[in-house]
Amino acid sequence: MAKEWFLLRKYILQRLVISVVTLWLIVTVCFFLLRLLPGNPFASTTLMTQETLDRMMAYYGLDQPLWKQYLTYMGNLLKGDFGYSLKYAGRSVNYVIASTFPVSAQLGLQALAFGIPTGLLLGILAAKLRGRAADAGINVFVIICTAVPTFIIAALLQYFLALKLELFPVAQWKSFAYTILPTICLSLGTVSGYARSMRTLMLEVDRQDFLKTAKAKGLGPARIVVFHQIRNAIIPMITNLGTEIAGMLMGSYVIEKIFSIPGMGAYFVDSINGLDYTMVMGLVIFQAVIVIGANFVVDLLYGVIDPRIRVR
């Protein structure tokens, strides 16, 4: 037991070191790549004279040598300061993240909380009812969810459920009622993905010898499905969970735009389009931390779910 704890601590430490190095690489590459892009953060459809532009560049220190800008940025970063947006004067990147991340995270978590169980359930049902009408129905549903773009489904849901039936508000983010339609829309990809994978994995597990053993031991069908079939089928699906959680937490540009949700998604797109260096950097670093963290947690979860994968 003591040896296991020692190995676990060593594993965590190794992962932390790798994570820090990865993060530094991401920051550095991203910093220099951004500066290589043509244009500048102050170019907009409003005409600005070259003299004014030069003054703006100097005011924000963008006329300094690149290495100097990099050192300044890294110095601020070590203090946890992402700086202020170059596009939206007065908005600190830290504040933008602090105010928009909870919204995107809530939406993402709701979508996962709804999407994963629903997807798993549909996958299990389709596998257990293989070849029947229900299986075909679930397959059609999954194909629709995969093939039809989210913005079309969102528009249809808005039209029928909000505008015609008045069950939900059309858009905005004020109370739980406002979150339902975007949650459903955002979760459809998860539902279809998990349903498809779970069905396949359940069918694969169904052919394994240990299930025959379980049946021979006289276990009930429900117990076999829950404790043997599902548990074994679910392990491969955990692999992508970290990336998926991170992706969902960081917001969806399309869903947030359609439902007028004050999340992070729009900032990603707008800041890249507008070459808002500080905003892009802050968001990328934050996302990298989330992705690295989520994958780390998932790796630890492996050991909990499957004893064969524990650190030795």
Binding site: P38, G39, A43, S44, T45, N273, L275
Partner: peptide, 8 residues
Amino acid sequence: KPIPDAIQ
């Protein structure tokens, strides 16, 4: 071109 690039 993207807006910043086109303006430049």
